[in-house]
Nucleic acid binder design. Structure first.
Length: 276
DNA sequence: CATACGTCCTGCCAGC
DNA sequence: TGCTGGCAGGACGTAT
């Protein structure tokens, strides 16, 4: 997805227009993005009033007046396009679900690859759902000590660990790679050999990268758009991700690309020494 | 329990 | 010009 900064940007945009408004009807154009029987999904929503739009990890979370929730995981190419005030979301290229509002607006879930998933969570099941995810990296309670404890329990490559949503919620490949570049840690380093000082650097780097990306409205590589249909501006600020064969801005050494865990990692072979 | 890998799906781009 | 292979922000299920 769209990682934490992109979900945050989308949620903020929708939070400014949706609370107080009511769903009139739901049209499902693509059954496979909905969790459970599509008919039940579409039938459950009409009449519910939005109370809040927020985020948990990479998920955009809509909370209704009765405490039930609609959770949207955007997969690789999901977008939530707001036509809440214009009546229709114009930029949808692959609409999958329309949420028609009682006052005439419409919010569209759009997804080229359809890896995204829309799930309804009853009020009573929210705690359990949320508990499956790790801590929020931007929360005050996510300290360097918390990160150190997580790292110490795993021999997996640190990049893989950062991507594990049960360990830390919201970090994806772009920001994991960027944070490791800032912290000068090789992506394949076994998590439990990272020392206290390096852990402190990584902790600071993860939070800094996520905050800066939120400030820039996220990163658009291809598909990502915020709720208003705009691209994110953080792409220009990437130092390692997607920059194979370009000079590291710290030391001019060529950035390298390696693949493990089925995904690309980018790093500076000089600044980020290989583990041994 | 932890870790590794294949799979879902479509579109784009480089190279031949 | 057209085809093929590789690659893409994620996460789930299964095997080991």
């Amino acid at each position: 997805m769209p990682e934490l900064p992109e979900a945050e940007t989308i949620a903020r945009g929708l939070h400014s227009v949706l609370p107080g408004r009511v769903i009139a009807s739901v049209t499902i154009l693509r059954d496979d993005v909905v969790k459970g029987p599509p008919r039940g999904f579409a039938a459950a929503l009409p009449g519910r009033q939005f109370r809040d739009v927020g985020r948990r990890g990479k998920n955009v979370v809509f909370t209704f007046e009765d405490g039930s929730r609609l959770v949207i995981n955007l997969g690789m190419t999901g977008r939530i396009l707001s036509g809440a005030n214009s009546g229709q979301a114009r930029r949808a290229t692959h609409p999958a679900v329309h949420f028609h509002l009682a006052d005439g607006g419409c919010v569209t879930y759009d997804d080229v690859r359809r890896f995204g998933l829309l799930t309804l969570i009853p009020r009573a099941r929210w705690r359990d759902w949320s508990r499956r995810l790790g801590p929020e990296p931007l929360a005050r309670s996510f300290t360097a000590r918390v990160l150190r404890k997580t790292l110490s329990r795993s021999r997996a490559p640190v990049r893989s660990l950062l991507l594990d949503q049960r360990k830390i919620a919201g970090v994806g490949n772009i920001y994991a790679v960027e944070a490791l570049w800032f912290a000068r840690i090789h992506p394949a380093t076994p998590a439990n050999v990272i020392g206290e000082r390096a852990t402190a650097r990584l902790h600071r780097s993860v939070r800094r990268v996520l905050r800066r990306a939120i400030r820039a409205g996220g990163t658009t590589l291809r598909n990502y758009r915020n709720a208003e249909g705009d691209v994110g501006r953080f792409g220009r600020a990437l130092h390692a991700y997607g920059r194979a064969d370009e000079p590291c801005v710290r030391c001019r050494t060529s950035i390298e690309r390696i693949v493990f865990g089925g995904r690309s990692a980018f790093f500076c072979p000089r600044c980020q020494a290989a583990p041994r």
